[in-house]
Structure formats: structure tokens, C-alpha cells
Amino acid sequence: MVDHAQQLADRVWHRYDRKERLIRYAVLLGTLMLVFWAVRDIDIFWPWVWDAPNQMSNLGARMWPPSAAGLSNILNALLETVHIATLATFLTIFLALPVAYIAAQNTTPNRACLWLGRFILVSSRSVNTIIWALLFVAIFGPGVLAGILAIVFRSIGFIGKLMGEAIEEIDRRPVEAMEATGASKAKVVAYAIVPQVMPAFFAIVILRWDINIRESTVLGLVGAGGIGVILQGAIDTFAWPTVATILIAIIILVLIGEAITSLLRSKVL
């Protein structure tokens, strides 16, 4: 009988071997402890949590039906939002390309430039648009300039990083061929590098424009222009039906932006 039991035991099937299982349990245990700590320690008044669905449906009810009053205001603000995103994306191109050039291993003039370029990209990317906006509102006062600058400063990191990677991934061979003809550095760049990164450039700029449309909808919450300004105003005055209209307008704007983006992408690429 013992023999038979042994045989059975041998035939027990496990999905994972012992070490894998240990790691899995350790990770699971660690995660659980982390969650337990987070739930216990977080500064939440729990009765509010249970009341939250109630509160949200309440807010939803107050928003319904959306009010069409002030629609022309909203449309103007939407247009301003689009302007901010577009102008900022346009300006970014001129700033991001030189940074990408010095931050790419194969085109950077020297190591100091390489690290300067990388430093610019990292600092631009690690500060969120709305924090940039906070800073520029403090400097230039509330208004669209702060918004445009905030978007520009955040987009430099995005476009610069992706363009830098595109430059690093080019085919080296045409570069070699151009150098062999006796072309200067600028001509090598114009003939062997620019044509190769053109498709990536269009794709990246279009992608960032789409993201910038979304980002510029919130700039107004810190006073940096766009639709966010009137959204904040409507919330502050408890004009919930207007808030609902603004939200719908934002969704439509974002969806239109996405449609334009995919249209452009299919045209260009």
C-alpha cells in the first residue's frame, strides 16, 4: 500500500516548481503586507467611503440635464485650448530638435553636450505639465502664456527623447557613404540623417499634439488658460449643469483630436 501511495505522490502535478512557488508566495505576501499597511495607515475617514457611491450619484443628479447656457463661452475656451496645444507643439519642435541632436550618442558633438542634452530631457520629463504650469503662473501671472510654456517645457522631454532614440537607431551606412564623399558634418546630417528620421518625426509630433490637447484641458485649473479656467469657475459656483456641458465638450474635443491624429498618421506614414 505504501508503495502505491508513493506512486500516487509522484504523480501529483504542480503548475510551478518549488523555487518558483516560493518566489510567488513571497511576492504575494509582500504585496499583501504593503496593501494592508496602505489601507491601515492612509488618512481616510471610512464612513465617507461607504457613502461615496451615494455622493457620486447625488453629484451626477445635480449635473443632469447639462445646461446649454454659456455654450459660446465654452466653445471659445475650447478653441483657446486647441490654440495652446497647437502653438506649444509647434514651438516645441524648434527647441526639442537641437536637444535631441546633442542627446543622441551618434550625433552629439562631445560628452559634455551629451550629458547636457540628457539632463534637459530628464528634467523636462520628470516634471508634470501642471507643475510646470504652476511655476510659470507664478512667474508670468495667470494666462495662456504660462499654459503654452508649461506644455512646451513638458513636450521638449517627450519629443526630444523619442527623436534622440530615432537618431540613434538610424542606418549607419549612408552616413559612412556621405562622409566618404567629403561632405561636411552639416551636409551629412541633411542627407543621411534627416531623411531617415523624417517619418519618426511626424509620428512623434502628431502623437504629442494629441497628448497636448488632453493636457491643455487642465491647465486652467491652476490658472494657465484654456477650458480648465471656466471648468474651475463653474465648479466653484456650483453650476453643475454647466460643468456637465464642459465635460461633454472636453470628451468631444479629445475624440476629435484623436480622429485628426489617426487621419494625419495614415496620410503621412
Binding site: 557613404a177 564623399t181 567629403g182 561632405a183 561636411s184 531623411p195
Partner: peptide, 23 residues
Amino acid sequence: AELRRARRKIGMVFQGFNLLDRL
């Protein structure tokens, strides 16, 4: 510049052609 002037007197043909594909 002197190197570039020297290079333009030396033509080179490559194994992988090394053309500017998109032009």
C-alpha cells in the same frame, strides 16, 4: 576641411550600397 578635400578625390563603392534609401 583638408581631409574633406582629400576625401572628395577618393570615390567609394560599398558592399551594402549605402544609398540614401528615402531619397
